[in-house]
Design a protein around this nucleic acid. Sequence first.
DNA 1: CTAAAACATGAACCTAACTTTAGGTCAAGA
DNA 2: TCTTGACCTAAAGTTAGGTTCATGTTTTAG
Lengths: 145, 145
Amino acid sequence: MYTIGQVSEMFDLPISTLRYYDKEGLFPAMERKNGIRKFGETELEALRVIECLKASGLEIKDIKRFMQWCTEGPETYAQRKELFECRREAVQEEMARLQKTLAMLEFKCWYYDTAIADGSEDGLQSMMPDKLPSNVQKLYDLAHS
Amino acid sequence: MYTIGQVSEMFDLPISTLRYYDKEGLFPAMERKNGIRKFGETELEALRVIECLKASGLEIKDIKRFMQWCTEGPETYAQRKELFECRREAVQEEMARLQKTLAMLEFKCWYYDTAIADGSEDGLQSMMPDKLPSNVQKLYDLAHS
DNA sequence: CTAAAACATGAACCTAACTTTAGGTCAAGA
DNA sequence: TCTTGACCTAAAGTTAGGTTCATGTTTTAG
């Protein structure tokens, strides 16, 4: 069993954040002794899942719902699995979006490299999507698709 | 030249958002006629860049700084390029993070699949990192690395 | 036994990025 | 002429996810 201070160090999270998560119902099984929180293995695994679901873009209130399911036994396995499938798809879509963003950023890097090397042209409008090197053309197409 | 309503449709952004961007200084070159905003090609390209930089995680006030640089001519090429490089790295790091999140989510999907198929075991603690199928072991290792 | 460190609470505060509201201007069509 | 629709502004409101504050209790080290 760990104190809130120990868990704060283990996960590199402010104590205030752990208390906030608790207040929001993210540790429905947490016990206390004289009012003091006792984090057990259940809460540590909960925190790992919280970090994962948060990174997937899920909101706190929905993470709370998941943690509630976890206290309700095998009847909720299907819902829990569906949630993870859903987050998996969301993350895949976000990665695809970021891939396009990356292409645009790489195009812009190339553009300014070229502009600096040339010592010419300015501004927001000055890139004509003709006659670019074909690898850059690919970045440009991807970024604007 | 386009009105704010036309641009709102073109970019599928609320009019209020466009006015907010303008108020925050994201269109430093925008002209007006009788107080009415006139969006030109400069502003459309600015919007494309705004969406890209926003998707990369950049804050509005930093996007404003970039737009300011764009009005200052070739002297700021180096800064602008550095910004894009910096965002490129940030996006690459974010994608690496998401890759790990994805591994964890896939592990959880596998876990609940198995639990449902087995019709056994409950809760947050019940996954021992021994004797998993080796492809699942890989997901698990990646997610916890 | 006592002082400091670590824990607790509720309430207020914070930030970013918008959105909504209330009130006003202006051009075009019936 | 009137009224409808698209535009304008400043200011207040909203939401998520915390953080800070004031105050009080419990644990721990000397």
